[in-house]
Design a protein around this nucleic acid. Structure first.
Length: 354
RNA sequence: UGUCCGAUGGUGUAGUGGUAGCACAGCAGAUUUUGGUUCUGUUAGCCCAGGUUCGAACCCUGGUCGGAUAA
């Protein structure tokens, strides 16, 4: 079986190679360059060290190694999507789009198609049900990364391998240090990858500029301050408002009027919600309930959190709706709601929060 | 103009003679493959000038500023 293994130089993806070799496979390693420099020199993803480590891994395990670039694709799909979404007042999720469109999209079209499987270092698993592959959660429920995979489709899931999905993070670290992998002690990667060391707000300022507007207390209707552009704030956000007498949380945006609505205090009701409406919901594999019509008990996430929330899923025409069992904070349109089965073992699908 | 009240970190406030606290904001770090949340740490202050006192944010006098009220 021919396996294309995506390796980033981090601990997780490094260990996948060890795992694959243990299982008798001989993967071809791919390092995808996406850190792109635009005309302003503002996108920057320092990849030297990553490539160095990946090269070492390839040599250590005697794997073929290719460095490929998806700069253009990344820019056209992920970065522009991010900017467009933010401009419309949404909260984008570039990393989910990167998985869907780049790692398992463009890569597949250009190189992956020649392989039987694509392996990555995600904390996720797949399982077979009635002969069909389903995306499933990882053994390490805290590190589980199925949320970021919620937008992939059946063809992609069918072809994916997650060699560390059945390991705990601690076990991965153990293997890495036992195998003396240079990435053993590297910090977990975090943050939007294309930004590198660039501050997200700087990035937005660069592309969208500043546009002062009012901050209004939703409860009293009073203007309590000024912001520099609605795109610098997302629903549920506390940091960055600069208002005293808080804490204050962003609860609503008016894009046309460029107004930010906030609520004050630690537990105002306006900060929470129980209903999440989802547009464009799609099952990754298929509707496990058959013809979905009534109400189903599910678990879900509206952002990458350690816990799964309980809720009920219903369908209203083209829109799916989650009724959360408990009130949840920061329901941000543009983010994806990812649906799991009742036991949080199968990742069923996702759609965009509206 | 008279009278009264107030003046404490960026903001809102505790502290009535003895080391100036708290909240929010800010900053830093932890957590997190999305700017979110959460957690930890931290910066920064007694309107000014005199006086009383061993010692003053606190008491007294004057000034400055803000608010109220009277004509």
């Amino acid at each position: 079986m021919d396996i294309a293994a995506l390796v980033s130089g981090g601990v997780d993806s490094s260990v996948t190679i060890f795992q694959l070799k243990e299982q008798g496979f001989d993967p071809t390693i791919f390092y995808i360059k996406i850190g792109m420099e635009d005309e302003h020199g503002y996108i920057d993803c320092p990849s030297e060290e990553d490539i160095e480590i990946t090269t070492y891994i390839a040599r250590k395990y005697g794997c073929k190694f290719e460095i490929v670039s998806l700069h253009e694709e990344y820019w056209e799909n992920v970065v522009s999507y991010t900017i467009e979404a933010v401009k419309r007042g949404l909260t984008p999720n570039p990393d989910m789009m990167c998985n869907k469109l780049i790692k398992f999209g463009s890569f597949e079209q250009k190189w992956g198609k020649d392989f039987d499987k694509i392996s990555t270092g995600h904390y996720a698993t797949t399982s077979l049900l009635d002969g069909k592959t389903y995306l499933s959660t990882a053994k390490d429920k805290v590190k589980d990364q199925t949320y970021f995979l919620g937008q992939v489709n059946y063809l992609q899931v069918n072809k994916l391998m997650f060699p560390i999905g059945n390991l705990l993070k601690s076990e991965v670290r153990e293997i890495a240090s036992r195998e003396r992998l240079p990435s053993a002690d590297r910090k977990d990667s975090q943050g939007i990858c294309f930004l590198g060391k660039i501050d997200y707000n700087d990035f937005l300022k660069r592309y969208l500029g500043e546009k002062p507007g009012e901050i209004i207390d939703l409860e009293t209707g009073k203007t309590v301050g000024e912001h520099k552009g609605y795109w610098f704030h997302t629903i549920g956000q506390r940091k960055g408002l600069g208002l005293s007498g808080g804490p204050w949380f962003v609860v609503k945006k008016d894009i046309d009027e460029n107004i930010l609505f906030v609520s004050n205090g630690y537990d105002p009701e306006t900060q929470y919600g129980k209903v999440v409406n989802i547009a464009g919901f799609q099952f990754i594999t298929e509707d496990i309930w058959g013809d979905f019509s009534d109400v189903k008990n599910i678990k879900f996430k509206i952002r990458h959190t350690p816990e799964f929330t309980e809720g009920k899923l219903t369908k209203i025409n083209d829109i799916y709706r989650i009724e959360s069992a408990e009130k949840i904070q920061g329901i941000a349109p543009g983010q994806f709601a990812v649906i799991y089965d009742e036991t949080a073992t199968l990742c069923l699908g996702s759609g965009m929060i509206i």
